[in-house]
Write a protein that binds this DNA or RNA. Structure first.
Lengths: 292, 292
DNA sequence: AATAAAATGAACTGTATGTTCCATTTTCGC
DNA sequence: GCGAAAATGGAACATACAGTTCATTTTATT
């Protein structure tokens, strides 16, 4: 047992992914109890990283010695060296962006490296995404998509900072074969276009403080005309939240006063693709969708 | 020492951020060696999480007993309980978005929950951001910002999927008082606008496979006329990379064929604010910048 | 400057840990 | 079905560990 283990030609995995691959590769050939440990290890990597041999063994329903045998089977010289790999896995993803954000802010004074600026925006984006993943409500989402799904034409309303999101939605809806109309301020035709909307249509309105008055006003008019409004905004006190049929609260982190758009973008894509999926399901079966 | 420590009224921090705040709060009042440990702990949280009292003490340049005193000063009953907080920190951020992405993909078949779709886009965005944070090159970034800083007018070139990024750049540059010109396909005036550009200007061109021919052609013309081009694209084989003065390779993850824009957006904001910072420095001192 | 109090260093100790060993059971080849 | 080899359970072992103790030094107080 001790002489064949260390004559393996391949180097031992030093990172988790390689180890995972190795385990999956040998899965078939492992003894029962060892396989049991292997399965547990891949399912509960954190436990392996932090636990003691005894506690892990108990959780996995084996003897501590089996853990050592498992490690040795893979070529490690003991449980401890195997555990290092599981710990390394946690170390790698070490600096969360939330931490970086505070760090970046902390020493923003000592010379403005451009790298630091980009890092700041990356951190803000990452944090926004994290927050959204925790806060998004399934039911609100389902209602919004249902509502949009019923629309003949989806009107998209956003100005200034939110405009990029609107243009992305319009582009994606177009690609997905959903009829939509982007309200541009440039064209100056907003009032005419808006007057075409009926209660059988729907609106996606996006606005964050300080709310663009055009967006708010147009959304209000549309809502008053019976057109259902899905709003993406930043608080319950937003004017959009007052009359929207469904509204999302999106908390974007900012860097240097510039707020991220990452979470809003992801939500927008979710709404867009969600609607498209529904319609696709209604008609036939799914068709391959090209990269967009 | 043992009777005053546990009579603290406030609950002990169970999560890292609270602990960090507590330490920073008491920083002034801590004895020298204890403060030394505190500084080390905040700088090397991973070491605290995985190391032994002896190894950490050695790294931090103190006696092991000082570590225990540090923990007790904060109100914990020993080093081990303090260490739990540092370990918990690593556990929390356990499910990385990269992992979630594969999960989401894995069971994409079993009924298409809308939540799953949004999660997919969030995961793609997060992964894109992670990849960019690892790959971005400081020198390229500095060169690009230098180049843009020298421009009289910054022309922004992007179509279709990349257009939202362009519109965001244009908006932000406007807010920051940097002269820029967004090339819209809608207006049909692109050729005329482009003909105004001189070598004293600069171009930001954004395009990903499949490259919009208008973007590529216009960028090529501008470059041929001596206007320096900063390109954001997806590979060295991109047509934009051929003639760009500086180019960034951005690898965006995708979900269901829809690529994220998160990393591109963050980079774009970095370029924008980087240029603005440079110019602000050139003129006077920094002015407060409002949320955008 | 003298004294008390707090902080520090370093050796010590009980314990909990990873590992080894061996008896027993199971699996596999013939 | 028999014998050998591998696998397993469980206890014993050596040690590395966190925590304690105490002598010494440093800091604060009067």
């Amino acid at each position: 047992m001790d002489d064949m283990a260390d004559t393996v030609s391949e180097a031992l995995p030093r990172d988790f992914e390689a180890l995972r691959a190795l385990i999956l590769d040998r899965r078939e050939s492992l003894p029962k109890r060892i396989a049991q440990v292997a399965a547990y290890a891949l399912d509960n990597p954190d436990e392996i990283a932090f636990g003691t041999a005894a506690s892990i063994a108990s959780s996995a329903g084996v003897q501590p010695s089996t853990l050592i045998r498992f490690a040795q089977h893979l070529g490690y010289d003991g449980f401890t060296s195997l555990q290092q790999v599981f710990r390394e896995r946690l170390r790698e993803r070490t600096t969360s962006y939330e931490e970086r954000l505070t760090v970046v802010r902390g020493d923003a004074d000592d010379g403005t490296s451009n790298r630091r600026i980009v890092d700041g925006f990356l951190a803000a984006a990452s944090k926004s995404i994290d927050v959204m993943s925790r806060n998004i409500d399934d039911e609100t989402l389902d209602r919004a998509i249902d509502l949009l799904n019923g629309a003949e034409t989806i009107y998209i309303l956003a100005r200034r900072r939110s405009y990029p999101v609107a243009s992305y939605i319009a582009y994606a809806l177009g690609k997905l074969g959903v009829r939509s109309q982007l309200i541009e301020s440039a064209s100056g035709l907003s009032p005419e276009i808006i007057s075409f909307a009926t209660p059988r249509d729907a609106v996606i309105a996006i606005s964050f403080s300080p709310y663009a008055s055009a967006t708010v006003e147009e959304a209000r008019v549309l809502s008053a005309n019976g057109v259902p409004v899905v709003a993406i905004t930043d608080s319950a006190f937003s004017p959009l939240a007052q009359f929207a049929s469904v509204w999302f609260e999106v908390a974007e982190a900012d860097f240097g006063g510039f707020r991220s758009l990452a979470a809003t973008m992801a939500l927008a894509m979710g709404l867009t693709v969600g609607v498209a999926e529904l319609r696709r399901g209604r008609k036939g079966r799914k068709s391959a969708n090209a990269k967009v």
